[in-house]
């Protein structure tokens, strides 16, 4: 009986970490600086059966790298997919609460427009089975760009931006699948950059890569943050510490803590973050 009551109270307990996740800092006060803001975001999978994000409150700064870390299954990818509404493709997925992009409710923005502004790089490199050139031209072509010169310029620029140009400039018509894994991932980044987005979402972009390819992508991300807002999911805490400006730590669907990366790793405010960083679980 007592146990039952305990369960009841557990369920009713409302998660409220907003004190730990909304920062009281100058940069966050100016709405101009904020790319995404989430308020009281809940997400349910399987027609409401699975509560996968619980009361998320977070602001993502423009032209900064924000890293999402946390144990497997805590909802990092799920939140990332909220930002370009890729969750719409999943049957039975429901999002409640406010997510704003540049101050505008993302449900009111045309999804196609949103996805051209918010690019996504997936965990597994997934170039299309076409030539390198066509891989990059795919997005712009879908937006109706047909001019060959323009497309060629886009190809060159995005390959240079993604640090792939020197390796593939002499075989742009080779299949995208003929590249190595790390090259494929950079091709996927190039493909995303070709849309000239404002934000790039990266879901564990280096988890399928070896250390050298990983290093290259990390260098690239540092380069890219001059132009783009980047949100990156990673399992690798060193990576988060190396490349990100802000770090968000998730657990069991909650956003536990959000802070400047240095501060987060030096002085975690939540016990759970501290345990995770020091490797006591997860």
């Amino acid at each position: 009986m007592i146990e039952f009551e305990n369960e009841q109270t557990n369920v009713e307990q409302k998660v409220d970490n907003s004190a730990n996740t909304l920062l009281d800092k100058e940069e966050f006060k100016n709405p101009e600086n904020i790319a995404f803001s989430c308020r009281n975001v809940d997400l349910y999978y399987d027609y409401g059966e699975k509560h996968s994000l619980k009361n998320i409150n977070i602001d993502i700064l423009k032209n900064k790298v924000t890293a999402f870390i946390g144990p497997s299954g805590c909802g990092k990818s799920t939140l990332l997919r909220c930002f370009d509404r890729m969750n719409d493709l999943i049957d039975g997925c429901k999002v409640t609460g406010d997510i704003k992009y540049m101050g505008q409710d993302i449900n009111e923005i045309n999804t196609i427009y949103l996805r051209t502004k918010v690019g996504m790089v997936f965990q597994q490199p997934n170039p299309f089975p076409m030539s390198i050139r066509n891989n990059i031209c795919y997005g712009p072509r879908c937006q109706g760009i047909k001019n060959k010169d323009t497309l060629n310029k886009i190809v060159e620029q995005s390959l240079k931006d993604s640090a792939l140009y020197d390796e593939v400039s002499d075989r742009l018509d080779a299949s995208g699948l003929s590249l190595s894994g790390g090259q494929q991932q950079r091709l996927c980044i190039a493909r995303t950059i070709a849309m000239s987005p404002d934000v790039i979402l990266m879901d564990e972009p280096t988890s399928a890569l070896d250390p050298i390819a990983t290093l290259k992508i990390e260098e690239l991300i540092k380069e890219l943050k001059k132009k783009y807002t980047i949100i990156i999911v990673t399992h690798n805490m060193q990576q988060a510490a190396r490349i990100s400006d802000y770090t968000a730590f998730f657990m069991l669907g909650e956003l536990v803590e959000f802070n400047e990366t240095e501060e987060f790793f030096a002085h975690p405010r939540d016990k759970r973050s501290e345990d995770y960083i020091t490797g006591r679980f997860g």
């Binding site: 370009d84 890729m86 493709l89 196609i112 427009y113 996805r115 051209t116 690019g119 996504m120 997936f122 597994q124 997934n126 299309f128 089975p129 076409m130 795919y138 997005g139 879908c142 937006q143 996927c188 493909r191 995303t192 849309m195």
Partner: peptide, 27 residues
């Protein structure tokens, strides 16, 4: 057809029709 291709296409701002023609039927 590889689901990740379809997701990549949609994430690049392709409409459903474009994805179906250029990625799904192509693959």
């Amino acid at each position: 057809v590889d689901k990740s291709m379809i997701n990549a296409s949609i994430a690049l701002g392709a409409s459903n029709a474009q994805t179906n023609l250029k990625i799904v039927l192509f693959s």
